[in-house]
Amino acid sequence: MGTLLKYGIMFVALVLVQVLIFNQVHLGGYINPFIYILFIMLLPVYTPRYLLLFAGFFLGLAIDVFSNTLGMHAAATVFIAYIRPFVIRSISNREEDRHEFPGLKQNSFSWFLYYAIIMVFSHHIIFFYLEFFTFTHFLTTLLRVVLSSLFSVFIIVLSQFLIFRE
């Protein structure tokens, strides 16, 4: 019950922070950070996969409803929820690397950084190409993906130092 409440609060807080603050960030017209995927990233490692996928879907849908991008965030978050176990397995090369929680506090800095980069980049590449749905702006979109990913990773790592310490 305690964990359910904790993750419930985290869900609501991240959706609100995303739609009220980070959706209003328009740096140079290219950078649009999506930090709400931190929710998918921080679920315990042994979360059942169906729960992970449903959490991804509903998280994406919640963001979609607020930002009028029906289905786009949902598609991207379901994808990263699906690949998450593979990502964690592939970057934890030693058995003692594996921890129950994939946060920064429980793992080494470089592990978390790799994890954040892979998850954020996968999410952003799907979202931005789905959004523009044309390859005529291929390079512009790629630039948006790279710049936004850098910014999102920065915010996500920073948030680990500031808020999710306990």
């Binding site: 996969r49 169906y50 996928l53 879907f57 994406g60 849908l61 029906l70 949902a74 598609a75």
Partner: peptide
């Protein structure tokens, strides 16, 4: 089952994207 569920949810999400107007 995870793969099947993944395909189902992803299809649902993409259906929303491409049938935008009817979902609106």
């Amino acid at each position: 089952y995870a793969f099947v569920l993944f395909i189902l949810l992803e299809t649902l999400a993409l259906a929303m994207v491409f049938n935008y107007n009817s979902f609106q």
